[in-house]
Design a protein around this nucleic acid. Structure first.
Lengths: 85, 85
DNA sequence: TATAATTAACCCAAATTTGGGTTAAGGTTT
DNA sequence: AAACCTTAACCCAAATTTGGGTTAATTATA
């Protein structure tokens, strides 16, 4: 069976970055809505403050688990992070 | 301001593993429904066959980007991976 | 203004993830 | 049974992510 899907349907680096930026922006929005600092979100989610900042800035590929931890700390449904992706 | 949320609302290792197992199971389900091999999913998503296997087995913390790549290759809405989490 | 609080930007090392290669195991087909 | 396909299970090295520490920059508050 010949398969061609690899020719077109892959994420480009630019698309990746866009997604990570949007995700981070969304995390920051929710955090600020709740009036929580990065530092408190970090301790609550048991993720380092450095990493929380990096996630909000979309600098690295965040794992699903980290997003869930953050959502928990924000008392937020993590699925909603993906709503407008 | 005194904050107590860190006392209770964190993911345990066991919960993490459960989530990763469920996620992997779901990926495998969709892949098998589509009748695609791990190898083809790997080449289509531009993720190594090793990593695809590990993700399906829930062995490592998969990144959001990887899940999106996999979903794309499966012609699937990645948000649905989280439906029954 | 100045002081404090928050976030960004670094460096560095440790930990984790990822890919490539190989072999074994399980299942299917001939 | 043999050959084949698919997945698991390894090892290893490379790449990436993560955390800790520090300092600078930015923003808010007194």
């Amino acid at each position: 069976m010949i398969r061609f899907s690899h020719i077109y349907n892959v994420l480009t680096k630019e698309q990746e970055n866009k997604i990570l930026l949007k995700l981070g922006k969304r995390v920051r929005e929710i955090r600020e809505e709740k009036g929580i600092t990065q530092y408190n979100l970090a301790t609550d989610s048991e993720i380092s403050k450095n990493q929380v900042g990096r996630i909000e800035r979309g600098e690295y590929k965040v794992s699903v688990i980290s997003l869930i931890k953050i959502a928990k700390a924000l008392d937020y449904d993590f699925r909603d992070f993906f709503k407008y992706l």
